[in-house]
Design a protein around this nucleic acid. Structure first.
Lengths: 217, 217
DNA sequence: TAACAGTGGAACGGATCGTTCCGGTCTGCT
DNA sequence: AGCAGACCGGAACGATCCGTTCCACTGTTA
């Protein structure tokens, strides 16, 4: 088939179109592969995407570049979800919905678990800060709604996300279901209840999980 | 110093004693190192123990051997804790105490996270089965006490342990504290409460986490 | 049809790691 | 005293893995 359509360059077919499609396919494959194993070789991404290694190196300067982009995307997704959630009028629903969507999208694995495998950009630092601010705002609204027990702090959100991300079975959809279950248990545990003992030990402190963002050895 | 004491061979000093001491030191180092990173090189264990590599290979046929032993020890610890807990008269306290001790000892990382890095022995299979039976007994007693919400199943214990093991900061003692907090939240979430919605999705099924025990690729 | 963007995949070089091996030391026994 | 050998430290080896480069090839565009 020769140049199939007259449309300037939008539709598909032709070398340009394949390249554009590959942009997507590669990112998707990279997400899947590195979510499954943060230390996966770059060849695994190429294989999964059904492309050669060159197709990867044409787009990214190296592995670190790809990881950084992936992580940054996750961060942006987190921010976007938080912003969207802030539009929800019901305080508790905003918080619970936000967390659920973040868990579903596995944003935590994308950000925290990939951190340390590359040197972050300044923009990522800014985005991370903004992510924290937005999450804090959501949290405080949730607390104001009175459904959170009083000895819970914002940083417990990190514990919660970690707990959900830790759930992992071979099937992706089943993983999502089990994470939802874990999330429900955790949210119930964080909610006000008549007769529960106070949570033990000092609560997680600000920045206590920042060590993950330092480059590993 | 020549042979220092007259006691037959019990106390210490002398090549034999050092060897006996090394047995301990090495196992301890291996536990610490592989708990921190299941894929750590064997040299890291030797370094941490302050011994040469030979001291390791004199005791274990290879890395797999060491891992297997470590994992089996964890399994035995789990069984021992469960047996001890079954002696506790209060049903709920038996369950909660058991889980807390298992979390404190990081038995989950020792067993589940190390699985798949070696071919298990038959005895390990038997012990694992026994571990499941004991845990189920404890769980059923806890349920009988009425403090567990009705839609919780034994397999939720796996989710709970995974969530606690996922909490990890550089300092070991702090890690223990945070895990206790996570555990408290989860137990609160699993407890009966007046107005909570039922847990979403099908509950974890028996053997749903067994894939971890299969040798990785 | 000439130039070239885009690609597949072999090949290279470096790093890592499990395991072996050898030379040395100290001990326990004769 | 002295010797055989248990025990040890750590260098060296070989296998494997992985990131990156490179080149030949293909269809497209001008």
């Amino acid at each position: 088939m020769p140049t199939p359509s007259g449309k300037t360059d939008a539709p598909l077919a032709g070398r340009r179109a394949q390249a554009a499609r590959n942009d997507e396919v590669i990112l998707e494959a990279a997400r899947a592969v590195f979510l499954d194993d943060p230390k996966a070789p770059i060849a695994a991404v190429a294989e999964r995407a059904g492309v050669g290694i060159s197709a990867l190196y044409r787009r990214y300067a190296g592995k670190e570049d790809l990881l950084r982009q992936l992580c940054h995307d996750g961060l942006r997704r987190y921010v976007a979800e938080a912003e969207a959630a802030l539009g929800e009028p019901d305080d508790w629903a905003a918080f619970a919905g936000f967390v659920a969507r973040v868990v579903d999208a596995d944003v935590h694995s994308l950000t925290v678990h990939l951190a340390g495998t590359f040197t972050p950009t300044e923009e990522m630092g800014r985005d991370a800060m903004r992510a924290n601010e937005l999450a804090t705002a959501l949290f405080q609204r949730a607390r104001a709604s009175g459904r959170l027990r009083p000895d819970v702090v914002v940083q417990d959100l990190g514990l919660l996300l970690e707990a959900c991300a830790a759930v992992r079975v071979p099937d992706a959809e089943r993983t999502r279901q089990l994470r939802r279950r874990q999330l429900a248990v955790l949210l119930a545990g964080l909610s006000t209840a008549p007769d529960t003992d106070p949570l033990p030990g000092p609560p997680p402190a600000a920045g206590e999980f920042d060590w993950r963002w330092q480059r590993r050895e």
